[in-house]
Simulated assay, not measured.
Amino acid sequence: MSFVIPEYHHPDFSLLQFTEAPDAAYEVVDKDGVAPDYFHSTSMYPEYFKINGKWLLAGESRMDSSVVICDDGHLEVVENRNLKKGDKVILGRSEKCEEGIYMHCGGFMTEEEKTDDQFVFRQGRSRETSYARDYDNLFELLRYEREHGNILWVMGPAFSFDHDARAAMQALVDNGYAHGLMAGNALATHDLEGALLHTALGQDIYTQACQPNGHYNHLDVINKVRRSGSIPQFIEDYNIDNGIIYSCVKNKVPIVLTGSIRDDGPLPEVIGDAYEGQGAMRNLVRKSTCVVCLATMLHTIATGNMTPSFRVMQDGTIRPVYLYTVDADEFVVNKLLDRGSLSATTIVTNVQDFIAIVAKGLGVM
């Protein structure tokens, strides 16, 4: 059965709660990076604001940001640190029309889903959960997104330590199942180490056997990349022909690498400024319609915070953004369970096994 995007249902603005609601109030920012008192903070759900008697949707939303009324009339969701003096910031802490603000959580739900209050067991997600249907749904979703959407992968370094996982992810990239990659210094460093030396942190990526002086390997690779000046130049200089990063460079898949206080090196492309890195990540998230977060707690939480549950497409239609988070630790995946059943799916498993199953399920390996 082929994947079908759920239809979005706008609120019924003819209802009294909307017609009798006041216009949303706003206040002008008087200092860069500082929101007015009582600013409205956004969620991951579609939010509407009554401006001059008309309900407007704030597109390109994200959690924990302010809503600015722009001079041309459209609404822009802006992180508070990026507010500028003179911006008109919407005020209000209620979300059911009382202050001209409405949060629409059920836009993609059918009437049956809205009224389904059956008591059922095993609604949580754990190591004991069966994920067979989740995998089937993911295969269909990724096939759809390859042609009609934008697939963003958020990856921890676990993939770079295993030969088969690297090969599986490379196959997905080579076959068009990646439109963006976000990671840290470690994923890229050890993947390039695997490509050049067949090790990750000095261990053979197939046998896991430690190599003599192997603890130097990733440091040597970082040094070589820095001498080359960039990852693409390093790939050319050393005739690299395998791996996740190689495949992304070859296929012109955008990569955002954000740094950590503990980084070695780092690689030249790693963004060391946390807020510059967050901005670069959000630029990729803004394009995405399917986000898959894999074995990286901090990147997963950061990405979840900046990923809305919906996307306004160029033709004006509204579709869901699908978020998957996969980790062997139940705590990590359950951090995002409150995003809503449609927009977030969590899988508790080893991500190296996960990526191999996905590659085989999609027929690329």
Rank of each mutant, 00 (worst) to 15 (best):
M103L: 10
E113F: 08
G100Y: 05
D87T: 03
K114F: 10
D87W: 05
S130V: 15
A178N: 08
D134W: 08
A158F: 09
D116S: 02
E145C: 11
A158M: 11
E113W: 05
D174K: 15
G92D: 00
G107V: 01
M109N: 02
Y177H: 12
Y144H: 15
N150E: 15
Q123N: 06
D87N: 06
A132H: 10
M155H: 09
E76S: 11
M103S: 09
G106D: 13
R125D: 12
E99P: 01
G107D: 01
E112I: 04
P157C: 00
M169D: 06
F161N: 12
K88Y: 01
D174M: 14
E140F: 10
E112T: 07
Y177N: 04
Y102S: 00
H179R: 14
V78C: 09
P157S: 07
G149N: 04
R166A: 13
E79D: 15
T110Q: 03
V173S: 05
Q170V: 12
A158W: 09
G107H: 06
S130F: 09
H163A: 14
G100C: 04
M109D: 03
Q170H: 02
F139Q: 05
R125L: 14
K88E: 00
R122P: 05
K96P: 05
N137R: 14
G156N: 02
Y131H: 04
G92S: 01
G106W: 14
D134S: 11
F159I: 10
Q118D: 14
V89M: 03
T129E: 06
G106V: 06
G156F: 11
N150P: 05
G100E: 00
Y144A: 07
R125P: 08
F139G: 09
F121M: 05
G149L: 00
Q123P: 03
N175E: 09
D134H: 11
G86M: 03
A168Q: 08
A171H: 09
R146L: 07
M169H: 14
C105E: 13
R146N: 11
D164G: 10
V173T: 04
E98C: 01
D162M: 06
T129A: 07
L141Q: 14
Y144C: 06
R133S: 13
G124H: 12
Q118N: 12
R166K: 05
K114V: 11
A167T: 09
F139E: 02
D116Q: 04
M103I: 07
A171R: 14
R93F: 07
E112G: 08
S126N: 10
G149D: 03
A158N: 11
A158D: 13
V78L: 10
E147I: 10
V120K: 08
S160E: 02
D134R: 12
E76V: 10
G149T: 05
G124N: 14
H179M: 13
E147V: 13
L83E: 00
T110A: 07
E99L: 02
G92I: 02
S94P: 08
L141R: 15
R125M: 13
E128P: 07
H104C: 02
L75K: 06
A171G: 13
E113N: 04
